[in-house]
Design a protein around this nucleic acid. Sequence first.
DNA 1: CGGATAAATGACCGAGGGGTCAGTATATCC
DNA 2: GGATATACTGACCCCTCGGTCATTTATCCG
Lengths: 224, 224
Amino acid sequence: MKPSTQGNNDRKPAPRWRRRKDTRPAEILAAAQEIFGERGYDATRLEDVGRRAGCTKGTVFLYYESKSELFKAAVREAMSPMVRDTEQAVEEHQGSARDLLTKVLRLRWEHMARTRLTGLVKLLLTETGKYPDLARFYNDEFFDRGQALLRKVIQKGADKGEFRKVDVEQAARVVVSPLLFAAVWRHTFEPVVPAPIELDEYFNTSLEIMLAGLDPAHVHETVR
Amino acid sequence: MKPSTQGNNDRKPAPRWRRRKDTRPAEILAAAQEIFGERGYDATRLEDVGRRAGCTKGTVFLYYESKSELFKAAVREAMSPMVRDTEQAVEEHQGSARDLLTKVLRLRWEHMARTRLTGLVKLLLTETGKYPDLARFYNDEFFDRGQALLRKVIQKGADKGEFRKVDVEQAARVVVSPLLFAAVWRHTFEPVVPAPIELDEYFNTSLEIMLAGLDPAHVHETVR
DNA sequence: CGGATAAATGACCGAGGGGTCAGTATATCC
DNA sequence: GGATATACTGACCCCTCGGTCATTTATCCG
């Protein structure tokens, strides 16, 4: 006798799959976030996403219209908490602009370093080049909001005399670039390079430089 | 009589193509640099490269082994001058470390902002993720050399007391990140966003912040 | 001029993968 | 324990694109 199932009950040969209309979307989304993050947009096969989510490609299409819609959903779900947390932090903050800037950058850093986000941030920065609608989506829904926040913080610091007078818009970009660089680095070069970045050292150094760079104590004329 | 050609000479019906064994490689390389830069690695069709170079896909393969070899050649040709110039600048420099750092960063900036390089730098940072050999190639042949140079400059400044004591390796990364961010930005988001970055403003602001950030005049303790 | 050489072509191959859908297995209801 | 509804499957379609190669055609040379 072929022991088709465990135990004495040979009536339920353990169904090959189950219906879970309500949990599927989340399962698929989680798998998509992982795999998109690991391999990038193009290299992600929907069949693999399905497999990791415990279903088939067909099921993926049952819940998401297309690859690019799935991607957007994955990004949205992963990034929203970060944006929300950061906006809240700015709103509630009492105290120096220095501390606030530190807090905001650190919050972003934590999110990016410790969640599935790393991979997705890198992705957005990079592979969206050939998909203008994805680029626009990311820019409008996330990047711009983040930058607006940073501009606000820097402007506030400048007004209170805690920061130098700088071009606020450009400074906001300068200040995030180390974070973005880290995201790109980790997912592009770290895997092929012997020595990994010491992440916390890197972040702390970048914060040091940024804070010192914005400090008004400076009276050097810097560039000609 | 069928007027096969212009004028009186009906013997040379304008050849459909010409032999140019010696100029083809360069033509193809130039086309490849442009198109890779515009569209990224995957989205680049060798047929399009051929067309822009004035030949067919078949001819491309006559001079380059494969797509990835063509890509490496394109990158090598585009990046070498920058690396060479920068290394030379460091070698020959007399004067303050501040000036040297400024010079090196500005040199890189000029190269990246004004040549076909922008597109390729962005590419390397991004799409190489799924092609480990390309990532390794770029890291070994270019990125590492550039970073070594920056470390040297920063170390020198620290030794002479012109810069603060910082984690040199991390600082070298922080200092380039605005440049890399700009490369990514221009090729990913600028096309889909109304207002472009004011490039020179951006660079100057970033230089300001970096130089001030490394200045030893600072006695704040910055981060806890 | 005409034959030899080889540069260039373009039709072709095959793998890969997004997207579809007829059929099948599971859940539910009576 | 059917009968019905539908979540899920997996084989299939078809297009794209890197890479190949027999054939075509420009050029060289005697």
